[in-house]
Every structure is written in C-alpha cells, then in structure tokens.
Nucleic acid binder design. Structure first.
Length: 532
RNA sequence: GCGAAAGUAGCUCAAUUGGUAGAGCUCCAGCCUUCCAAGCUGGAGGUUGCGGGUUCGAGACCCGUCUUUCGCUCCA
C-alpha cells in the first residue's frame, strides 16, 4: 500500500499531467511557492468559487457581494494592525536550529530581571513590618540597579527598532549573553526581518511616501466599504458582504504544494450583526459552513471543527473547519467572531463614523460591548458599531482538498487498476465527453450534433482518437462525470449509450433525454438545495 | 531560513569503477480493430535543472545556484 506521502506526490503529478496545476514559470525553473492553474484547474477552481458565491449571495437575501481592489490605501493596514503586528525580527540558534523572535528573546530577558526585582521586594516585605513597597523600590540599591538595567535594555531595544537597526538588535542579544533555551548556546545567526506584506510603489517616482501593499487578506476591502454597501444597498442588520479574490503573504516558509502559497485566493464573507448577538451568529455560521462543505458528498469523517483556545487580538471566538489532507488534518476554513475591532479601528484612523442606525436598538446589550463602546457612541440609543462574524475559506486549499480526496486508484474485477478522479459532478471541469465509437460511417457527424446541442448548457468535449476504452479512462482521470458514445445503433434509432464515471455502468437512452439526465447530475442547483 | 533527500524525453525510471544517453508508457502520421488504457509500421522528442571546477574524458566526482519533497520553525 502506498504511504500518504506517495499519495500526495501522486496528487501533485496527476494535477500536472491532466492540466490542473502547473508550477509557475516552470520553464525558468519555477518560482518558489507560486503555482498556475491549467485548463482543467481553472474550470474546477471557477466552479468551486461559483458554488461558494451562489450559496452565499444568491441563496441569502441579506448577503451581497463586492469586488474590492487589491491595492488599498496604506493606512488601511495600519488600522488593521498588519503593519505593526507582522514585522517580526527573527533570529535562529545555529545549534538547536530553533527560530525565535528577537524581540521576544529580549523581552523575556527583561522579564527575568523584573522577576529578580519582585523577589527582592518579596524578601524585604517578609523582613520588615509596615513595608512600604514604593519606598523600597525607589531606594533599595539592588532594586535600583536591576531597574536601571531593565530600563536601559528596553531603551536600547526601542531605539534599535525605531532605526530598523537589525545588527544592533543582534548585538543586544550578544551583549546580554542570552542563550537558546534548547541548546543553551549563544551561537546565533544574524537578525532578519520578515515582512508579511508584499509592497510596491504607486506612481512613477519611487519614494517612501507612496509605498503601497498587496493586500494580505480580502476582509479589509469589505470593512472599508461597509458603509457604502449598507447605505447604497439599504442593508438592514444583520447582513453580510461577500468577496472572493487574491491575497498575498510573504510566508517565511511556503510549502505543501498549493496549500500554502504566496499568492492565493480567499472567499470571505463578513456578517454584520447587532452587538450582543454575535455568539448566536457565530454558531449559526459554523453550522451553515460545515453543511456547505458536507453537501459536496465527500467522506464526512474528513471534516472536523477545531476551536481556537487562544484567539487573535480582534476576536472573541474562533474555530477552524479542518480537512484531512494527505498530510494530515489542516485548516480549510476559519469562522471568527471579530467583534467590532476592525470597524472601530477604521473609524479611528479615517475619522468617519461607521455606525448603524437601528430603530429598535436601545443601549449596550452586554458587558463586552460596554468595554469597547463608550456611552458617547450610543447616546441616542439607536446607533452602534456592528459586530462582525467572519467566514473565510482558502479557495486553493479547498481545491486541494477536493482534488486530493477525489483521486483514487481503483482495482477492477479483472485485476486492472483504474485511475479515477471522482470530483463532485457539479464541480467537474468537463461535464460530458462525446465519442463516436468509430471515426467513420457518419458517427463523428452524429456525435458532433450532440456536442453542439449540449455545449450551450455545459462544458463538453469531443474525442475520436484511440479506442473507446482508452477514451473512457482518459475522461475518468480528468473527472468527467458522463461519457456519451455514438455507435451503429445510434444512426438507426437515435439512441446513444451514456456511461457513468463512478460505476462505469452504461445505459442506452434516446438522444432527446440526454440533456435532462446530465442536468440532474451536474446542475449546481441540486447542490445548493442540499445546503439550504 | 536550517537540516535531510531528490532533479536524466511530456510521464515513470535505467545507464557496471568516470568511457557511445536508453527502455516502457505518452505524443504525432498511417494500417487494423471496435464499448473499457489491444495490435502492427514509421516518426518526433535530450546542451542529463542551471553555472563553474577536477579529468584525455563527467549523467556520475567537487563547489555554487535554482526548484521540489520531508522534518524543524512561522501562519491574522
């Protein structure tokens, strides 16, 4: 039996061989962690995106979709926290091969000094009655010495960061004789800066002031348009804004094929709710999103929820839908209760009010809200900054999930093996392949008639090369749900055989029934019905 | 980024100790056959990832580099 590792390699080579995924710029040796979608990959990806879009926008009367630009005003990323939060200086210990954030190493060192101060204070507190801690801290020589040292380190570190002086950051680590907790050695690499966001410049002249970033998430395009959409669409809370699009992250390590790429596509929906109701909506969306995935008919055991124990700074609850990839359970989709963090940040940075006027609303609904929103915000008892529940799927990850789980080596009764890509039929790049059994006697012409009939409804293909078995197997490997074959009998009575990809069973039907049979299997509306 | 392994035809892989780069499948043209990867004939396809070096001679040995996979690390 093949190992999961072999299976994954199979998926990658199959993806290439059948026009699903190619490495970017392959003729130039490729570009690390960037991939292109081929003729079949582009179709599958588009179909997955359509399934998501239609189930979000078409199937929910209170969700609308937008398409925001990838370029956004630089202040967006200051407000969102991306500029500050993801510029970590990193350093490696050469002996233990462990990587650390340089700022964390230094701060930990400072904390140790503060621990020492604390111990001194505790010792003294035991010794003296009527102990005055403030007095002790400001007079005790040893404490003062420790404090001075801690202050000095922090000041030095702050200056180094402000000057973007990474050599100095390393020097601080060297001077403080900080050792690696694992190896215990001081054998450090240089400090390097990893920037999450790709930057470029706008305008012909390059200078600091016109640096702009390629968005690292699509969500901010939704937040900055919140008011535009709410007003122009006369949206009533609760409502959602959906968006699909490319995002870019300069990952330190981007690997595992298309699972983690530097350029990738997200499908995000931000749902704006009344403060205090966010947990209900969070649970609702968790359930809905899982149902959406499971409607695809993939083995349900491959999906599971994973709740985040530690949530990001902006969230008060978060869960992932994980999928069992060939390399284990990994995140496919995130559902986050993002509170009012983003909208409030944008209010603050833009100076524009991003509030919702709610006829029925009277004051804060929970203590959480009272913490972040001042009475000033709801003084008229009708306006508030909405809370947000986010659903965010990686389109490329979902693509990989579907592709990898669909690829199978099937043992047939006669001992042969069949390579089968059992894609959900509604998502398959090509819905029907049409073959003349032989390339003569008018069969190709008859087959072309059927081809021209079906092409208005579906992506169909026509093939007359090679023997029929070979053509069937080729379509199996691409994942085409149906093959239709025109034979001698077709010319006499207008019937054809229609072969099912998964069962390999054939049925003889009259040509005018084909459209209905195919539609029932591949029309996305049946998939959408399963989710609602 | 560190460590390990790998890179030869579109794909899967050979090539003795350093001595003429090959097979199967695929692809193209034709013949035959006609419902599950059949057969026959012919053909195309390569600066062995790329760049240096050692050698009379390198696919093989050495150095560098790029890409991929695995482990570590990071992941809003």
């Amino acid at each position: 039996m093949s190992t999961p590792e072999d299976q994954f390699k199979n998926v990658i080579s199959h993806a290439k061989e059948y026009g699903y995924i190619f490495q970017s710029s392959e003729i130039y040796d490729g570009l690390s962690a960037v991939y292109d979608y081929g003729q079949n990959g582009a179709e599958l990806k588009k179909n997955i995106r359509d399934y998501w879009w239609r189930s979000m926008v078409q199937m929910h009367e209170n969700i609308v979709g937008i398409d925001a630009a990838i370029f956004m005003h630089p202040t967006t990323w200051k407000a969102s926290g991306h500029v500050d939060a993801f510029n970590d200086p990193l350093i490696d210990n050469k002996d233990s091969k462990k990587r650390y954030r340089a700022d964390v190493l230094i701060e930990d060192h400072v904390k140790k000094i503060e621990e020492k101060i604390k111990k001194e204070v505790e010792k003294a507190a035991k010794r003296f009655e009527g102990f005055d801690e403030a007095m002790f801290r400001s007079t005790n020589a040893r404490v003062l010495e420790y404090q001075a040292k801690a202050d000095e380190i922090e000041a030095r570190f702050k200056t180094a960061l402000e000057n973007n002086d990474l050599a100095e950051v390393k020097q601080i680590i060297v001077d403080l004789e900080i050792v690696c907790p694992i190896s215990g050695s001081r054998n450090w690499t240089d400090v390097r800066q990893f920037n999450l966001m790709f930057s470029t410049s706008m305008g012909a002249v390059t200078d600091e002031s016109n640096i702009i970033y390629l968005r690292p998430e699509t969500a901010q395009g939704i937040f900055v348009n919140y008011l535009n959409v709410q007003k122009s669409g006369r949206m009533k809370i609760p409502f959602g804004i959906a968006q699909t699009g490319k995002a870019f992250r300069n990952e330190i390590v981007a690997r595992q094929f298309i699972f983690r790429m530097r350029e990738f596509e997200q499908m995000e929906m931000q749902f704006f709710v009344k403060p205090g109701t966010e947990m209900e909506w969070y649970e609702t969306w968790k359930t809905r999103r899982m149902a959406w995935h499971k409607a695809l008919g993939i083995d349900e055991k491959k999906y599971k929820f994973k709740d985040h124990i530690k949530v990001a700074h902006y969230a008060n609850a978060a869960a992932d839908i994980e999928f069992e990839f060939p390399f284990g359970f990994k995140e496919l989709e995130g559902i986050h209760s993002r509170t009012d963090f983003d909208l409030r940040q944008h209010e603050q940075f833009s100076g524009k009010k991003l509030q919702y006027f709610d006829q029925d609303y009277t004051g804060p609904l929970n203590s959480e809200l009272a913490k972040t929103q001042t009475p000033e915000d709801w003084k008229d008892n009708h306006s508030y900054v909405p809370y947000v529940v986010e659903t965010s799927v990686g389109l490329d990850r979902l693509f990989l999930a579907i592709l990898s789980t669909s690829l199978q080596e099937e043992k047939l009764e006669d001992g042969e093996t069949r390579t089968l890509l059992s894609l959900p039929p509604q998502l398959a790049p090509i819905k029907v392949a049409i073959f003349p059994l032989m390339g003569k006697d008018g069969m190709p012409e008859k087959a072309m008639e059927i081809f021209n009939l079906l092409r208005f409804d579906h992506n169909v293909t026509y093939e007359e090369k090679d023997n029929i078995g070979k053509r069937y197997r080729r379509q199996d490997a691409i994942g085409t749900p149906y093959c239709i074959t025109v034979d001698q009998q077709s010319l006499e009575d207008n019937t054809v055989t229609i072969r099912d990809r998964d069962t390999m069973k054939q049925e003889r039907v009259s040509i005018d029934k084909i459209a209905a049979i195919v539609d029932e299997k591949v029309n996305m509306k049946y998939l959408l019905k399963k989710t609602s």
